[in-house]
């Protein structure tokens, strides 16, 4: 492909959806592999962002703003989720410093 042909190549929604799929896969892999609860939480955020990206790509493709409204709600719920999740992690770590996800297999304090 020549440089002139490359210059006229415009990314369409399929590209964004593929990128979102890759981002979601990386997030899922990290969630399964990492043992630090905080880093696992960050991987959940990666997956949420992948979904946000595909929501916006579909909103542009369909010409329907409702997809972007959905992203707005995902942002709000993600913020609330992070607050609650970090609160739980703080109260767990206070009881058992240095706990990993494997140490939390039983619910007993």
């Amino acid at each position: 492909m020549t440089a002139a042909a490359l210059a006229t190549l415009v990314p369409n929604s399929t590209w964004y959806l593929l990128l979102a799929a890759v981002l979601f896969g990386i997030g899922a892999f990290g969630l399964l592999v990492r043992r630090n609860p905080l880093v696992m939480f960050m991987c959940v955020e990666l997956m949420l962002n992948a979904v946000n990206l595909s929501f916006v790509a579909f909103a542009v493709r369909f010409g329907d703003i409702a997809g972007q409204t959905a992203v707005f709600f995902v942002l709000v719920v993600a913020a609330a989720e992070v607050v609650v999740g970090l609160g739980i992690i703080v109260s767990i770590m206070r009881r058992r410093p240095g706990a990993t996800a494997d140490d939390l297999a039983e619910l007993r304090g």
Partner: peptide, 20 residues
């Protein structure tokens, strides 16, 4: 765990990518 996690991650990417 890690090979299985890699399979899950790569499988997700390939399946969604193919569909897209």
């Amino acid at each position: 765990q890690r090979p299985l996690a890699a399979v899950v991650g790569a499988g997700t990417v390939v399946l969604v990518g193919t569909a897209v």
